[in-house]
Write a protein that binds this DNA or RNA. Sequence first.
RNA 1: GCCCAGUUGGCGCAGCGGUAGCGCGUUCCCUUGACAUGGGAAAGGUCAUAGGUUCAAAUCCUAUACUGGGCACCA
Length: 916
Amino acid sequence: MLPKVYTPSKVEKRWSEKWQEEKLFLPDKNSEKETYTIVIPPPNITGALHMGHALNNTLQDVLIRYKRMTGFASYWVPGTDHGGIATQNILEKQLKAEGETREDLGREDFLKRMWQWYEECGNIILRQLKKLGCALDISKENVRFTMDEKRKNAVFAAFKDLWDKGYIYPGERIINWCPRCKTALSDIEVEYEEQNSKLWHVHYPSENGGKGLIIATTRPETMLADTAVAVNPKDEKYRSLLGKKLSLPLTGRKIPVISDESVEIGFGTGALKVTPGHDPLDFEIGERHKLERLQVISFDGLMINCPEKYKGKKAIEARKMIVRDLEEAGYLVKEEPYKHSVSTCYRCHAHIEPLISEQWFVKMKSLAAPAINAAESGEIKFHPENWKKPFLQWLENIQDWCISRQIWWGHRIPAWYCLNCCKGYLSTLSFGDKDSENRTYEILPANIYPNNRKELFKHGLIIISKEKPSSCPKCGGKKFEQDPDVLDTWFSSALWPFSVFNWPEKTKDLERFYPTSTLVTGYEILYLWVARMVMSGYEHMGKKPFSHVYIHGTVRDKKGKKMSKSLGNVIDPLEMMAKYGTDAMRFSLITQAIGGKDIPFSQEMLIGGRNFVNKIYNVMRFILMHIDENEKIKAPIPPFFDISDRWIFHRYNEMIRNFRNCMESFDASNALNHVYSFIWDDFCDWYIELAKPRLETEERKNVFAIIFKIFSGALKTLHPFMPYISEELYQNIKKYLVSPRKFLLDEEIDKFFPELTDEAALEEMTKVMDITSKIRTLRSQFSIPPAQKIKALISSPDARLRQTISRNTFRIKHLSRLCSIEIGEMPKPPESVCAISGAAAIYLPIKGIIDIEREKTRLLKELKKSISQAEYAKNKLNDKYFREKAPKNEVEKMKQRKREAEEKTAKLKSFIAELE
RNA sequence: GCCCAGUUGGCGCAGCGGUAGCGCGUUCCCUUGACAUGGGAAAGGUCAUAGGUUCAAAUCCUAUACUGGGCACCA
């Protein structure tokens, strides 16, 4: 005998192991079926599964299982991402705890450690996904990694391709520099935070001591690198100063007043200090006016090239000192509170420093064109669609992509420099590598400005090669140096939908599975990842990478805040799975993943899921409890004569239709709701209740046949959402099923069959259910204990209705716990309470215990409702516009409503009269 | 500044043209042999505000107000 309460952990372990052992999730190589493919958004190898992963992967699993069970050969491609900066940061933290830095270790040893980390921890997350029930084959041969050999090939091929086409180039410009991660970032890797700061107004006097002008700035520390002050040419206020020179406070350096259209008249003071070395807009102005670029903040975020007192100070400290010095020297005119957004690093949230440096870029404009077309034409569809517009807007305003990172963990840029050819362009500064025995000349690391890649590029001295070239094609030289930078981790991610199939090799899998079907992802990486996959898909494969983008929201805490360690509001999915069961967690995630909206998640929400699991488990227990182990069950054969049988098939069929429709329109949440209420409300609460007495009659065999048919069918629809409980129960009833498969996943979910639609059965059962509810309400209101069987009288002038009721006497009796029902056309007996169900009046004779006042109050309340309903319907029908313009069936409906409300009113009135 | 969502019972959300549903919570009754992680019942919402379209609006349109998000700007 099964225990009363289901314990998930054992069951989950058993099935997740079994599924893997049996290779259930690998695609059938010989299948003729249409493929359905999803490539996993590869989780970073940074550690443990979080709620976001749980949501993302649950949704993918739902789709994969659903498709597989509706006739597709589905394949979910697993893998992990090396996760550049994020992973390197973790290791650096570890080193720090050991009192070391990556520089201490040197590049080679540091990378060794990184790989060791990957070997040890790289697959933890996949094992956790296995626990989550994901239909992913996580065997070593099947799992991809963004830095394994095959993916390396893909990265090189893509790089080479873009290089040959002239899209990749080294360039020098202002980039986003994270002084903490010590690397450049692309524009979309920068986040913005609103911050209360100040706007300082500073007096810049003329060089001859004249009045000069006043500028406003939020970053006074950068004034040490000012090389001009710009005003709008149309600004009358400053016209006389144009071309004159100002004396920069604190240093006395002379800087010109220039005119530039980009300066907005009336913004701030209308005069803009120009700092080409530390501000993107100023950099552009500097370009236009050929201004000198000074750098006063280093790549470590410390002050350099400045008066001694500031040197080596952090920028933020230098700011305080400079403000104080300005004030003391009388240059500070005013200081006002100012709110502006500060850019921060998406990995560590340190302040981003805009700095000039030489980086590798990809020209994006022409790559974006096919992606724009794909979104516009609907070749790639978004679910929900409202992300299409932002997606397009981003692509339309696309900037060149900075792909070089000054970290060590990643795909090293496959650019080589022949030391002989490059002599003269290269400096001799070292960049901390220990693996440079034979090095004569070295490439400057990009974080030391300036360096010379752009010169080498101009002279055609950059060699693109996967391995170290054997000899220089120009001079035959043998000594080479590889570019020190690595590629943005998103560069390899962008190739994922085809690199997983070993592109550029022309594999069968690539042929068979590309383009993939659906990509499931959170909106936060729509540009960072999705847009780039679309672009690379068209560029390298000539085809879109996927047809649908299924976008979900972010899992937040119950107040809507982002989960973060610092806020202490993180909910650990593993803990939740252990506590409530995996199916319960999946249930609550899915039911809330609606229309791409964020999910306010809390533990309480898991209760509903857990209860549902328990409910299903128990109905199973009930079924098994009443069947003999050796009993043979045949397929149920229509036509069915019992109204509840006809009704449950009707409801089941409707559920199937709704379920399928929802799934096809990417509404997993609603699909699950339909399954949920079918199982709980229709099947358990009504059908099984009605089946109970029948199990002891000659109907027994038929009833079981139907129970197994319906229940196994429901388990199939449930399987994509809650794989464990459904599999477990399926295995338990397998022997009673007609043609069971080894695993539930191999079964086919039923189709919608129009011929099973049975409106008559629905109508009749609805009647039975309504009468039952009315009687239950009376019993509850008059505190008749459930154990007490009582008599009911049902009166109606409608002969057909009386017939219907009498056909269902035993059902109503059973459901309402009555000893007998008398049907006829009778007056309300004395000492009875009553209710109205449509055209029928229900009387429960109760001797001596009726509280007259209470009954009267109750009836008056009902009467009031009934009168207002009749009133409403009457008014509607009196409205000639309604009668003329509304569709006929609406008018009919209203007429019926009026009739029913009026009948009810009349009855209630008479009942009340009798009480007086 | 531009754009996009959201505003529905105590809480979280569905519904998106015919007078409101779900889950959790609350109150009452019930340990009847699948399930108290259960059953039955009840209370509780004029669907943000103001206009408009329509025979009919939570549902469509237009403003407004909050809330959240994306993009741009940020001297």
